[in-house]
Design a protein around this nucleic acid. Structure first.
Length: 660
DNA sequence: GTTCTAGAAC
DNA sequence: GTTCTAGAAC
């Protein structure tokens, strides 16, 4: 996911913003004197062999410095949006663009400029006052939606010192939180007052639907976003629509921005914004009250990206509130979920509603892949935005007590919608970098085309091994024990017990337990039966072996696979807590229970990966142990009876009359 | 999923 | 000093 800054070190471009005399150069010099991060100060006043140069010269030098691995100060006035925009474009996946706005009083700046001697820009003497005043006339305060990752406002020397310290302390590997810091009540001059203050205008923040994990073409998606926004803005009164993306170099944001600017759309009511959709108020200073979630068809937490982030930020309240409204969602549909006032998102950010939306899927590794059928895909994406914006409209109308529309046509009946898939846990996501394309032998992971560029499939190569075997067992004769039309049985390459085999499903798009639905019941039963057959075979050889059949809640490897594993756990490959807990905590879902759940509720329950981090307990006597070696020592000799739970419903498979 | 390794724990 | 874990890289 996506919503974390976990990667390697990022370079930073800091735009200093302030008139002559505001202390930009001093700021840079002070930071650079004590910083452990390599910095380059790019000062337009001296860039030309000590004389004043041009903006393009500054840009070129900035690019060169970034290539050398340095972070960069842009030491020029940068007072208006236009002046800043070129430098903001320096941002990307590895480069954050920050702003430090030196908002000292004009008088201070003027008097400093007048007094100073030897200033590099040679702006001294009486002429300075006129220049500073002129410049300040065109000043526009920086805003996050220009594309800044972070903005700090400084109004006095103490603020400046604080900002200097912040950047001085920033080591090469450190990062700073995103958002807008220190801003006093925003200047009303530069933000023409609209009907109703921005603090009360209903605002929907929404991610681009289907363009992340579902790999929908960005050009087409941006057309649809702009088209639908244009269509709904007139119906929405003063309400605002804000397209949000986490990344500064976001292609979809720049496409939408470009397309919006060509149309007659009020940029105060439809605009793009960079930030974490769950923190736009606290970290980005944006007022908003409704967010859209790029949901999965089960309307469940987890996965990666926006869905995981929203459920995480909202806590269990969201899932409970969602359940009341619907259990599943069809592509092209949405469902409006009011958040209780106890919900953290409500309290911290002022979000009153989450609208779950499901878009079309163009990712061949996700269920209901549309196989590049963009006729259908565009239709579904249009429906998705229509449904989303209508949902928002219904919230707005409720909110303003306007006459209500007849009904919420966008809210699907709860219950029996057909499935669609979503973003998955981030560990499934391989390198997002297109250059690191996978080179598996299987042709099935070939990328789709996205604006003419091949994009990566989102699965790390190591996670595809089972899928590859399931699809082409004949190519893997050395590891395959048995195969039939629907299943393949293999030895686990790193067995975690004396006997440990996997029964793989051979169906495409069944990546794990989360994908399983009623349609798969027969397959689940077949996998179970094949598992039982292998248990019998093993027990015929060694009657002391006891088995469990089950699935990992969140598998590491693609392709639904049933573990058939003996309960001795004697194996050198069982090395860590994750290994142990994945087979002995409730993270391991017994096949009998999975089948029962799918029969009764149409889907299998899964639990969070957090369970894997829990303490190490013996699977028989439940005693706790400090580390893996001590645990294994204990397990080797523990003969306690298994917990009651496992003795029921044939969860545990022992040969007749042996449970000990 | 595993391997590798820094550094925490002992 | 050695053992063990946990996180990054693959």
């Amino acid at each position: 996911m996506e919503l974390e800054n976990s990667e390697k070190a990022k370079q930073i471009v800091v735009l200093l913003i302030g008139p002559p005399g505001s202390g930009k150069s001093t700021f840079c010099d002070t930071v650079m004197r004590s910083s452990h991060r390599p910095w380059s100060r790019i000062c337009q006043d001296i860039i030309n062999n000590g004389k004043a140069g041009t903006k393009p010269q500054c840009l070129k030098m900035a690019i060169d410095s970034l290539k050398e691995g340095k972070s960069v100060f842009i030491d020029r006035c940068n007072l208006d949006r236009e002046q800043r925009s070129e430098f903001i474009k320096l941002g990307g996946s590895d480069v954050e663009v920050h702003a430090v706005a030196l908002e000292l009083s004009a008088q201070v700046c003027i008097s400093r400029s007048v007094k100073r001697t030897g200033h590099e820009g040679n702006l001294q003497g009486g002429r300075a006052a006129a220049v500073v005043n002129k410049m300040l006339q065109s000043k526009e305060l920086p805003k996050l939606n220009e594309g800044f990752f972070r903005i700090m406002f400084c109004y006095n020397d103490a603020d400046v010192e604080n900002a200097v310290n912040t950047y001085s302390m920033l080591g090469p590997m450190d990062t700073l939180p995103a958002g807008c810091f220190g801003q006093k009540n925003s200047d009303t001059k530069s933000q023409p007052a609209k009907l109703g203050s921005a603090d009360t205008v209903p605002t929907l923040a929404f991610p681009s639907i289907s363009t992340a994990d579902f790999q929908f073409d960005l050009e087409k998606a941006s057309d649809i976003i702009v088209e639908k926004a244009e269509e709904f803005l007139p119906k929405l009164g003063t309400a605002r629509l804000v397209l949000v993306d986490l990344s500064h170099g976001s292609k979809i944001l720049s496409l939408v921005k470009a397309k919006t600017s060509q149309k007659n759309i009020d940029s105060a009511r439809f605009f793009t914004f960079v930030g974490d959709i769950t923190k736009l108020h606290s970290e980005g200073g944006l007022h908003y009250n409704v967010i859209a979630n790029a949901a999965n068809w089960r309307l469940k937490p987890g996965g990666g990206g926006v869905n995981a982030a929203i459920y995480k930020a909202a806590g269990p309240d969201l899932e409970a509130a969602t359940r009341v409204r619907a259990n599943t969602l069809l592509p092209g549909k949405s469902v409006v979920v009011p958040l209780p006032s106890t919900c953290p998102l409500h309290k911290a950010e002022g979000i009153t509603h989450v609208i779950h939306v499901l878009g079309p899927n163009m990712n061949p590794n996700r269920p209901d892949y549309l196989n590049n059928d963009y006729t259908k895909g565009c239709k579904t994406l249009r429906e998705a935005y229509t449904s989303l914006f209508e949902g928002f409209l219904s919230v707005v109308q409720d909110h303003s007590k306007l006459p209500k529309r007849s009904n919420q046509t966008t809210v699907p009946d709860s219950g029996d919608n057909i499935k669609e898939d979503t973003e998955r846990n981030k560990k499934f996501k391989g390198p997002q970098d297109k250059s690191v394309a996978n080179n598996l032998e299987s042709g099935s992971v070939e990328g789709t085309r996205d604006n003419g560029k091949k994009i990566s499939k989102g699965w790390s190569t190591w996670a595809l091994a089972l899928h590859s075997i399931a699809m082409h067992p004949e190519r893997h004769e050395n590891v395959v024990l048995e195969f039939a039309s629907n299943i393949v049985v293999i030895n686990d390459q790193y067995p975690k017990a004396q006997k440990h085999v996997l029964v793989l499903a051979r169906q495409e798009s069944l990546d794990g337990l989360e994908d399983v639905c009623r349609e798969n019941l027969q397959l689940l039963q077949e996998m179970h039966d094949v598992g039982l057959k292998w248990v019998k075979r093993f027990q015929d050889e060694d009657a002391s072996l006891i088995f469990r059949l089950g699935y990992h809640s969140v598998p590491s490897m693609r392709q639904l696979h049933l573990h058939v594993i003996s309960q001795d756990f004697e194996s050198d490959s069982l090395k860590n807590k994750k290994h142990w807990n994945s087979f002995t905590s409730s993270f391991f879902r017994d096949s009998v229970d999975v089948i029962e759940e799918v029969k009764s509720q149409g889907m299998a329950n899964v639990v969070s990966e957090d369970l894997l981090k829990g303490e190490l307990r013996c699977h028989r006597c439940r005693s706790a142990h400090p580390n893996i070696p001590k645990l294994k020592l204990h397990v080797r000799s523990c003969r306690s009876q298994f917990p009651d739970h496992l003795l029921q419903n044939n969860r545990l498979l022992a040969p007749p009359q042996t449970y000990q």
